[in-house]
Write a protein that binds this DNA or RNA. Structure first.
Length: 564
RNA sequence: GCCCCCGUAGCUCAGUCUGGAUAGAGCAUCGGACUUCUAAUCCGGUUGUCGCAGGUUCGAAUCCUGCCGGGGGCGCCA
C-alpha cells in the first residue's frame, strides 16, 4: 500500500525525490543507498539509520550513525565501515559532498559543498508553500475533540492550554497530510447542568446556592440577566444559562483564534427512540459486555484491558458520563473518522483506561482513540501561586489572562513546553516584560524580514524568488549555511510534531529559526550586496526564511506581523 | 497502599519516544554596540552532582530496577 503511494509520489515529484521534503530527503536517500551498497544486499535500510545534525562545530554539516549500526552484521569495526560508506557517498553525491570524516566511535561526518547549499535553497524556493506539507504516507481521517469544558462557567486559564494545544495540533496534522476535524463536546445534559439551573434560581432569590452548586460571580450575573429567574423552572433556567455560557465560551475561543468545525451537543445522544445511547448499550449487552450488580448496570471493561469494571447506568437509572461517551465514540466512527484524538486534563487520567477499553470493545482497537494528557498550568504572580482552583468561583478566566498578556503571548507560552509537563506561567513576568517574550523575538524576525523585503522592488523580488541556479560561485558565509540547514529541517520537525502530537516542537523550531535568521542578518548584508548574484541569493534566502517563520507561527496560531 | 506525569544552569524550559561525540536556548546578572537592511536587536563574560543509587552497553540526561521530592488520580462526579 505504502509502496504504490511511494511510487506515485516519486512519479509526481520527479526523480529528485519528494520536493516537499527535499533537500534532506535526497541526502538521506543517498546515505541509504550507500548503506545498502556496503551491506552488499538490496534490503531496506534499518529504520534506526539516522542523519543528524552534530551538536558541535567541526563535526560536519550532518552525521550518520550507519556504520555503527552495520558493524554487528558485517563483523567489522565501525570506523572501517564508515570509510567504505564515505567512498560510496562520494560517488553518489559527487561535487555536492565536499569531504567526509570518520570520527568518534564510528560516526561519518559529512561536509557539504556550497553547491549543495545553493541547490538546497533552490529546492526550498521551488517547493514554496508545499514545503513539508503532505508528508504522511498514511493519511487518516482524524477527529480531535478538545476543551469540551462544561457549560457551567466561563473558560478558565487552564482551558487556554487545551485550546492552544488542540487547535495547533489540528493545524499541524492537516499540514502533515491528514484530514482533520475539530470538535467541542458540549455537555448540556445531566446533573451538573441541573445544578447550574438550581444555582441560578437560588441566586435570583438571594439565597445560598445548593450544596455542591456553583457560587461564582458569573452565576449571579446570569441570574440578573435571565428574566423571572427567581420563579423559573429549574430545567428551563438551566437551558437558558447553558446557552448564555456557550455563547460566552464561543466568544472567548473566537478571540483566542480557536475555531471548531463542530459543537457537538451531548443531548443528541439521548434523543430519539431508540436513542444512540440505547443502541450502543443494546449492542454491548448482546456482546455480553454488560452485567447488573448492586442495582447498577456495569460494563465489563476489564475484559478490554481496564483495571476495573465501570458503571454505565446508575442505580437511579441515570446514565454515567462513560455511557454517553460510548455512544459518542460510535457516532464519531460512523461519521467516518478512523482515529479519534481526545486530549484530557491530567486530573482525568484515570478515565483513559475506560476510553481505551471502550475503543477496544466498540472500534476493535484500543489505539483508535488516543488520549494525550495535558498537565496543569500554574499561574504564578511573582513567587506566589495564583488561585487556579474553581473553589468558590475564585479562578482566573481565560479572558482575564488574555487581557493581561494578549493572545499571541498566551498561545506561545501555552505551547512552548511539552503538554505532558506542568507549566508555570508567570503572569507578572509575561505582563511586565512582554517585550522580552520569546514570541516577540520570533515575530520581530518576521517583521524585520518583511521590512527588509519592502526595500526591494517587486521585480527584483520576483526575479530573486524565481527558481534559478545562477547564484554565483563565491564562498557562502557560515551564517548562510546554518540558516539553510535550519530551513531544510522543517519537514522533519513537522513530522516529529505530528506523529508525537507535540506542538511544542514547532514553538522550539520557530525560535531556533528566528535565531538563525538573526545571525544571518547580522553577518550578511542583503539589500545592496554585491555582486548581483549574491544579493539575489540572499533575497531569496530571506524570503524563504520569512515564509517559514510565518508558517511556523501559523501552526501555533500566533500572528506573524509585517511590522512591529 | 496502588496507578499516571514530572525532576536538566539562580528562574522558565528544549533535548528523553528512536542511547552516541565537549548537555542547549531564553530570562536574570556583568561589560560593550544605536548615523542601522527595524536596537522589541546584537556581541562578549559568568552559569550544571542532568533528583539519588545501582544495572545493561564500546558508549546513558536518554533504556531497566529501587529510592527521594513535587503534582494528579484510585468502582455508580465530570
Amino acid at each position: 500500500m505504502t509502496g504504490t503511494e511511494e511510487e506515485h509520489r516519486r512519479a509526481r515529484d520527479g526523480a529528485g525525490g519528494d520536493l516537499a521534503s527535499a533537500p534532506l530527503a535526497q541526502l538521506r536517500e543517498a546515505v541509504s543507498h550507500a548503506t545498502a551498497a556496503v551491506r552488499g544486499d538490496g534490503s531496506e535500510s534499518s529504520r534506526s539509520l539516522r542523519l543528524e545534525r552534530p551538536k558541535h562545530a567541526g563535526q560536519g554539516d550532518y552525521a550518520t550513525n550507519a556504520a555503527m549500526l552495520l558493524a554487528p552484521a558485517l563483523r567489522t569495526r565501525p570506523p572501517k565501515i564508515a570509510e567504505l560508506l564515505a567512498r560510496e557517498l562520494h560517488q553518489e553525491l559527487g561535487e555536492l559532498l565536499e569531504r567526509t570524516e570518520v570520527a568518534g566511535p564510528g560516526f561519518l561526518n559529512l561536509f557539504l559543498s556550497d553547491a549543495w547549499y545553493r541547490r538546497a535553497l533552490r529546492d526550498l524556493v521551488a517547493a514554496g508553500e508545499r514545503f513539508g506539507a503532505g508528508q504522511t504516507t498514511a493519511p487518516e481521517r482524524i477527529l480531535i475533540e478538545f476543551v469540551s469544558a462544561n457549560p457551567t462557567g466561563p473558560l478558565v486559564a487552564h482551558s487556554g492550554r487545551h485550546a492552544a494545544y488542540g487547535d495547533s495540533l489540528v493545524r499541524i496534522l492537516e499540514r502533515y497530510g491528514h484530514a482533520v476535524s475539530s470538535e467541542y463536546y458540549f455537555n448540556d445534559a445531566g446533573s451538573q447542568v441541573e445544578l447550574l439551573g438550581a444555582s441560578v434560581k437560588a441566586r435570583a432569590r438571594g439565597e445560598e446556592v445548593p450544596p455542591g452548586g456553583y457560587a461564582g460571580e458569573y452565576v449571579a450575573e446570569l441570574a440578573a440577566v435571565i428574566p423571572d429567574a427567581a420563579d423559573g423552572d429549574v430545567g428551563e433556567l438551566a437551558q437558558t444559562a447553558v446557552e448564555l455560557l456557550l455563547a460566552r465560551i464561543k466568544q472567548t475561543l473566537d478571540r483566542y483564534g480557536v475555531h471548531f468545525d463542530t459543537f457537538f451537543l451531548e443531548r443528541t445522544l439521548h434523543e430519539g427512540s431508540p436513542s444512540p445511547l440505547e443502541v450502543v448499550l443494546a449492542r454491548l449487552e448482546e456482546a455480553g459486555a454488560l452485567y447488573r450488580s448492586e442495582g447498577a448496570l456495569w460494563m465489563r471493561t476489564t475484559a478490554y484491558g481496564d483495571d476495573k469494571d465501570r458503571v454505565v447506568v446508575r442505580t437511579g437509572g441515570e446514565p454515567t458520563y462513560l455511557a454517553s461517551d460510548l455512544a459518542y465514540m460510535v457516532n464519531k466512527r460512523d461519521r467516518g473518522f478512523e482515529r479519534q484524538l481526545n486530549p484530557l486534563g491530567a486530573d482525568h487520567h484515570a478515565y483513559v483506561g475506560e476510553l481505551k477499553a471502550a475503543a477496544a470493545a466498540l472500534l476493535g482497537d484500543p489505539d483508535a482513540i488516543e488520549v494525550p494528557m495535558i498537565q496543569f498550568v500554574h499561574l504564578v504572580e511573582g513567587s506566589q501561586r495564583a488561585a487556579m482552583s474553581k473553589r468558590k468561583g475564585a479562578f482566573v478566566t481565560l479572558d482575564e489572562l488574555l487581557d493581561e498578556i494578549g493572545v499571541d503571548a498566551t498561545r506561545f507560552f501555552m505551547l512552548r513546553s511539552s503538554h505532558d509537563r506542568t507549566l508555570d506561567l508567570d503572569v507578572e513576568l509575561a505582563r511586565r516584560q512582554s517585550a522580552e517574550n520569546p514570541v516577540y523575538y520570533v515575530q520581530y524576525a518576521h517583521a524585520r524580514i518583511s521590512s527588509m523585503l519592502r526595500r526591494v522592488s517587486a521585480g527584483r523580488l520576483e526575479e530573486a524568488s524565481a527558481v534559478r541556479s545562477d547564484w554565483g560561485e563565491g564562498q557562502l558565509d557560515p551564517a548562510e549555511r546554518n540558516l539553510i540547514k535550519k530551513l531544510a529541517s522543517f519537514p522533519d520537525e513537522l513530522a516529529e510534531a505530528a506523529t508525537r502530537r507535540a506542538p511544542h516542537r514547532i514553538a522550539a523550531y520557530a525560535l531556533e529559526l528566528a535565531q538563525e535568521f538573526t545571525a544571518f542578518y547580522r553577518d550578511c548584508r542583503v539589500v545592496g550586496a554585491t555582486p548581483e548574484p549574491v544579493e539575489s541569493f540572499r533575497i531569496a534566502l530571506s524570503a524563504v526564511s520569512g515564509r517559514m517563520i510565518g508558517t511556523s507561527l501559523e501552526l501555533l496560531g500566533v500572528s506573524a506581523p509585517e511590522s512591529m
